[in-house]
């Protein structure tokens, strides 16, 4: 293809996105668009799968049958999200095995929030309320993103996430209205999850490397700082309902901005965890790689069995 032709394709491509039309797997797309989407979508799928671990940690110890059933259902939803996000990413010409390989070797990232430990039952509430809350803010705009399979997957993901968020808030509400011990457990969870949740919305705009291009492709509608402000403004009144204190002495309503001012985020901690040195990075990867390696003989057996079955069928047909 001549450079002239490529430029023309690119122009048509950009115009299509500007008209809010979807890009589908068979459509022509710039290589950078493909690679960016593989990176972001697989990262998203990995986050769902690694995200099963901190909550899975409490399934056997959930305090009531009702909570156990709800937690199982939630973690199962996350596995489901992982499954169709992997499938959506496969439409861009990468296999699931390759994506796992990238996760297991550390080439692909996943959301850093899952590198924090879940220490008490209240963490199940805090994760639902704050982590899923922040995730929704990140994800709702993706329901209108330019890549069709991703946008469609996100519509379903967002519906379920908002249910999880309410469920998490309800866990917190029960604790906050419970005994002093329960309330203390809830406050402690908020203290530990608040700042990492703010970090989930990404580095500040001046440090964010992908923002401009992602805005153009509608992978992003608002900047990280705008999303973070939105999350804080929406969450502070919820903490008030719970009667819990946000662990930020600088948090203050700004009448002029009609928004909350907030304290300095510890970006050293953010980068430490992103670079692989958070409290649970090694354990999470060990769990994923371990499950994959322990499962190899099972997957091999399934493959061998399918081949035998097919061979028998063919033999019969002859």
């Amino acid at each position: 293809m001549s450079e002239e032709q490529i430029r023309s394709l690119e122009r048509q491509f950009d115009e299509k996105i500007a008209r809010d039309e979807k890009i589908e797997p068979k459509d022509w797309m710039p290589e950078k668009y493909r690679q960016t989407h593989i990176r972001q979508m697989s990262q998203h799928a990995h986050s769902e799968i690694v995200g099963m671990l901190p909550e899975g940690n409490w399934i056997t110890r959930a305090p009531s049958l009702r909570r156990k059933v709800a937690l199982l259902a939630k973690v199962q939803d996350e596995a489901g999200h992982g499954l169709y996000l992997y499938s959506a990413t496969e439409t861009l010409g990468i296999s699931r095995e390759e994506m796992y390989e990238q996760l297991h070797t550390g080439k692909a990232k996943y959301s850093s929030i899952f590198n924090y430990p879940t220490l008490t039952w209240a963490d199940m509430g805090a994760i639902g309320w704050l982590v899923d809350g922040a995730a929704i803010i990140n994800q709702v705009p993706l329901c209108n993103t330019s890549y069709g399979p991703y946008a469609r997957a996100m519509i379903r993901v967002c519906k379920e996430e908002s249910f999880h968020q309410r469920q998490g808030f309800e866990i917190m509400l029960k604790l906050a209205n419970g005994t002093p011990e329960q309330k203390e457990m809830a406050q402690d969870a908020l203290n530990r999850w608040w700042w990492p949740s703010l970090m989930m919305l990404g580095p500040t705009d001046d440090k964010s490397v992908h923002t401009e291009q992602s805005m153009k492709w509608k992978l992003k509608r608002k900047t990280n700082d705008e999303l973070r402000q939105q999350f804080i403004d929406q969450t502070v009144p919820q903490a008030d309902i719970l009667g819990l204190t946000i662990p930020d002495p600088d948090l203050k309503w700004n009448e002029e901005r009609q928004s909350y001012d907030f304290g300095e985020i510890n970006w050293d901690e953010f980068w430490q965890v992103v670079k692989g040195h958070g409290p649970m990075n090694k354990e999470r990867m060990k769990a994923r790689v371990g499950a994959w390696e322990r499962g190899e003989w099972v997957r091999d057996a399934a493959m061998a069995h399918a081949e035998k079955k097919q061979a028998r069928k063919e033999k019969q047909a002859v």
């Binding site: 499950a291 099972v298 997957r299």
Partner: peptide, 20 residues
């Protein structure tokens, strides 16, 4: 329920969680 997140594949993981 102990297996949730640790299954040999995503599909079996989902199935075991579902059985639980």
């Amino acid at each position: 329920g102990e297996l949730c997140g640790h299954g040999p594949s995503l599909e079996t993981d989902i199935a075991c969680t579902n059985i639980s």
